[in-house]
Simulated scan of single mutants.
Amino acid sequence: MAKKLVEVFTSGCPICEKTVKQVKDLTQYSSDHEVVVYDLNEKCKTNECEDKAKEYGVQSVPAVAIDGKLANCCSNNGVNFDTLEAEILGK
């Protein structure tokens, strides 16, 4: 399996934290995934997180991007955790 970059965009809300936990749980046993969490409330030292959110088309948080593309689990305002699992694990 090719290494995947999984980026999670949050605002620190309870649903965001659940999404971060889900992503970390799904990827914890695999060195094939790199997880980066961006809390948009905290801002980035650079504008990287805001730029990426804009580039990926993030309209609401939480949102997950995999390898530079907004994941299907997050394209309809909210996170579908079954779809998220399938996308991360390649099912």
Rank of each mutant, 00 (worst) to 15 (best):
P62I: 05
Y29I: 01
T19R: 05
C44S: 14
G68A: 03
Q28L: 12
V6H: 08
K52I: 03
K3P: 06
D25V: 06
C16T: 00
S75V: 08
V79H: 05
L70A: 09
V35S: 05
N47V: 09
K45G: 14
D25T: 12
V8W: 00
C49F: 04
L5C: 05
V64G: 01
A86G: 13
S75G: 15
K21Y: 03
G57W: 09
V61C: 12
V35M: 07
F9C: 04
S30L: 08
A65T: 00
Y29S: 06
E7I: 06
Y38N: 10
C73K: 01
N77E: 10
I66Y: 00
S11W: 02
E48N: 08
I88H: 00
D39M: 09
E85S: 15
C49S: 14
K43V: 12
A71T: 03
S11K: 04
K45V: 14
E48Y: 06
I66A: 01
N72W: 03
Q28I: 09
F9M: 04
K21N: 08
S60F: 06
E85A: 14
Q22K: 15
I88S: 02
D82P: 07
V64E: 02
L89V: 11
V58H: 03
V20N: 05
S11H: 03
F81E: 01
K43A: 15
I88W: 02
N41P: 04
G68I: 02
I88Q: 02
N41W: 15
L84H: 11
D67I: 12
N76P: 04
G57Y: 09
V64P: 00
L40D: 08
N76G: 08
K91T: 13
N80G: 11
V35A: 05
Y56L: 15
E55S: 13
T83I: 15
E34Y: 09
E48G: 05
L84P: 11
K91R: 15
K54W: 13
L5E: 12
I88M: 04
V64I: 07
D51I: 05
V20S: 08
D25K: 12
N76H: 11
E48H: 06
S11E: 03
L5K: 14
L70K: 06
